[in-house]
Design a protein around this nucleic acid. Sequence first.
DNA 1: CGAAATGATTTAAG
DNA 2: CTTAAATCATTTCG
Length: 379
Amino acid sequence: MDAPQRPPRPAPPPPAPRRSPPGPPPGSNTGDVLQQIMAITDQSLDEAQARKHALNCHRMKPALYSVLCEIKEKTVSSIHGIQEVGPPDAQLLRLDNMLLAEGMSRPEKQGRGASAAANAATPGGHPNEGGLEHSDYRAKLSQIRQLYHSELEKYEQACREFTMHVTNLLQEQSRIRPVSPAEIEHMVGIIHGKFHSIQMQLKQSTCEAVLALRARFLDARRKRQNFSKQATEVLNEYFYSHLSNPYPSEETKEELARRGGITVSQVSNWFGNKRIRYKKNMRKFQEEATIYTAKTAVDATEVRGPGRQASPPSMSHSSSSGPFPLTGPGDALIRLQTLACLQPTPREGGLLAQERLAGEANASRFTRWQPRQCPLRRI
DNA sequence: CGAAATGATTTAAG
DNA sequence: CTTAAATCATTTCG
């Protein structure tokens, strides 16, 4: 069975097509070879090994090898030309950054980054919330992370296996045909590129999942809860006692936030909502206004609580509102505005009333935040 | 259950 | 950045 190397004999015809005695046209030769190659796939491993061995020992092998070398010489330039092109992976970079920021990039550690990000992303977060919601959120985040890493690991292992397989194959083939290490490396690079794109898809979908989760859990609109009585009271108190200029300064906001047990952002939100809604129709707030102005009046005249009124001296008697003691003008203000709204011809009457009031009760800024008449006006 | 109330966000302007 | 205005999503109320 061993066919030791013999000096190449003069010239036997090319590796005769074994299967076609009648001699088909030479063009079908390659087709024949292809067919055989395909057939190898179906053969058992033993057969393949045997065939390989036979091929290795074939007497024509050196000749074939040299021919292949020649062919390669001619095509090597083209191979070089196809050198890997560095794909623009700016997107990948972005995804990586995001995953890193989301605490996704470390395998099985505590979701530290995610938790921090979550806290940072909820400015209006109540101090008490966070326990239950966050555990749920973190559990789901961890689930995503786990899936992500198991998939990643799977892909990486598959990539390694496939790379090794291809490398072995090429090394095996290098006995038959010339295969340079650079070519193997090139092939490995291609394989890695393919797996890289798969990984990118994985990262992208992970990012999407995280974003969806975030949108679902961290959007405070979905988990809104009304303020406590205390907070509402504090806010309304300030609002109606500074009706002429309901724009608390930053320090005042902090004070209100502290007293109401809410955040400064929430105070700002509240005042924004309150101003616009009060302006929208003041009639609705008349009762509330009366209540709170009366309350502040009581607070201002009678020292009810020991600490209650002592701390905010700048708030209790607003210096900007002028000298009126809050209850009288405040009340009158409400009445007048209400009347103005109820006038059949609100345009003139309302403006006149408002201007007269403004003139009487100082408040040059008074008219500023109430530019429009009451929305009763329909034209 | 539907409407009102309400806190938060988005959009646009300064 | 702050704010007015519009809008959203939820909670509360009748």
